Simulated assay, not measured.
Amino acid sequence: MPTGRIELKLRKVSQLFNTLDPSPFRESELALDAEDYIVGRAQELPIDAPVAIVIHLPSDELSQASASDIVSR
């Protein structure tokens, strides 16, 4: 079965996370807008399809330590 892709184009990694959450970066909650978008797109995919979330960032943002914290392959 093909993988469903959910793509996000962001200016900064911080757009993904709730800025009011006092937790360390790796433990922060997703921003409500990001969560709603991801869940909404996932609900459009077949229920048994694997999902890949692809995050596009500007090259200068990729060099930030926070960008490497969200990379998983």
Rank of each mutant, 00 (worst) to 15 (best):
M1A: 12
P2E: 08
T3E: 10
E7I: 07
L8Y: 00
K9I: 05
K9C: 10
L10T: 06
L10R: 05
K12T: 13
K12D: 12
K12N: 14
V13D: 02
N18M: 03
N18W: 00
L20K: 15
D21Q: 09
D21F: 11
P22N: 05
S23F: 11
P24W: 13
F25N: 04
F25R: 09
R26K: 09
R26D: 13
E27L: 08
E27H: 07
E27Q: 10
E27Y: 08
E29T: 06
L30H: 11
L30I: 01
A31Q: 07
A31H: 14
D36I: 05
V39S: 10
V39H: 14
G40K: 12
G40F: 01
R41Y: 07
E44T: 12
E44V: 09
E44M: 11
E44Q: 14
L45M: 12
P46E: 00
D48F: 04
D48Y: 04
A49N: 10
A49T: 12
A49Q: 10
P50I: 04
P50V: 01
V51P: 05
V51K: 12
A52C: 02
H56K: 10
L57P: 00
P58V: 06
S59L: 11
D60Q: 07
E61G: 04
L62E: 12
L62F: 01
S63V: 07
Q64S: 14
S66I: 09
S66V: 14
S68I: 03
D69T: 10
I70Q: 01
I70C: 06
I70P: 00
V71K: 05
S72E: 10
R73I: 06
